[in-house]
Design a protein around this nucleic acid. Structure first.
Lengths: 165, 165
DNA sequence: TGATATCGTACCTGATGAGTGCTATATGAA
DNA sequence: TTCATATAGCACTCATCAGGTACGATATCA
């Protein structure tokens, strides 16, 4: 199944919680309790988000976490990268990079390398276009109705941005 | 890492190979040899694709596989679903379905359920908009230059379809 | 100094991805 | 009829990783 993993899901939930308390420092325990996420696990999730500088951490008594940037500036791509590592789409796409941990066996002969790279770019842009602000906007009325139905003719086209407005 | 698994990658490579031999029946061994994919593994991949009716299988001597539909009609979503199961984006999105194998613990309280569903729909449409034909079109010149640079302002918008033309 | 909270890291366990092997069945040709 | 070829359907192994837990170190505040 092609899906985000649970940690990333928890991260998104925690981030929306922090966004709704913007400005305030909230402890991991509070977020865990209010979002019904196992605390020990959420602790690790928030640590990853802090390392990626998506949230700011404050140690000590009355410490906790807060968003490092406004929700509009936090992209889905950033969150996924923080939790799961660089998005790759097809695993070989980045292997031109010498440092890639997983060089592709087919590197020379691969018949889809070039087109897969292009699709990878589009995929990445899609993830970059989705922001935390859209996860906060829980109002379906903000989605232009014409975007909900014209499928797949307009697939992936022109609807993403309107979601946040 | 948010990525397609290797089997799906092999599936895409095999499908492009079949597409380039459109009409002809090609054996799994031939595809494996010409695409440099382990034969035993490719056999399973092609079986999955046949089960999903993405390719047609022909048993017996001189048997093999051929595309069941023209490349324009084969979407990335179909291939991923055939190889990895239904795309879910966030794992809970489909759990409203009673038959879901993985009901979400947070079902009632989840603060991102509704927006995640919307993003899931966009994500799915993106995958439906990418066709095998685009994997065959290896010519970067078919991509309008303005689509390659305006990032992320136009992210995910309006470029996908042009890729195949 | 003690309570609280994050930081870093290591660990466990079950599921799943990647790959292999075998038997049954279908087909075409000798 | 027989044989070679090729797919169909399982069942299996092995390694990796996701999901989750635990603990000592460190920072902050009262």
């Amino acid at each position: 199944m092609f899906a985000l993993n649970k940690k990333t899901g928890y991260a998104l939930i925690a981030l929306t919680h922090l966004a709704r308390n913007s400005g305030e420092v909230v402890s991991a325990r509070t977020v865990a309790e209010e979002c019904h996420i196992p605390q020990a696990l959420l602790t690790n999730v928030l640590k990853d988000l802090a390392r990626a500088e998506i949230v700011q951490s404050h140690r000590g008594a009355a410490g906790g976490y807060q968003l490092a940037n406004p929700p509009e500036a936090v992209t889905l791509d950033q969150v996924i990268t923080a939790m799961e590592g660089e998005v790759q789409f097809v695993r070989c796409v980045l292997s031109g990079d010498v440092s890639a941990a997983e060089p592709c066996d087919l590197e020379l002969a691969c018949p889809i390398r070039s087109p897969a790279s292009r699709i990878h770019e589009h995929f990445k842009r899609f993830l970059e276009s989705v922001t935390l602000a859209e996860l906060l906007a829980d109002d379906l009325k903000t989605v232009p109705p014409e975007c909900l139905d014209r499928v797949p003719e307009i697939a992936g086209q022109g609807c993403t941005k309107e979601l946040s407005g």
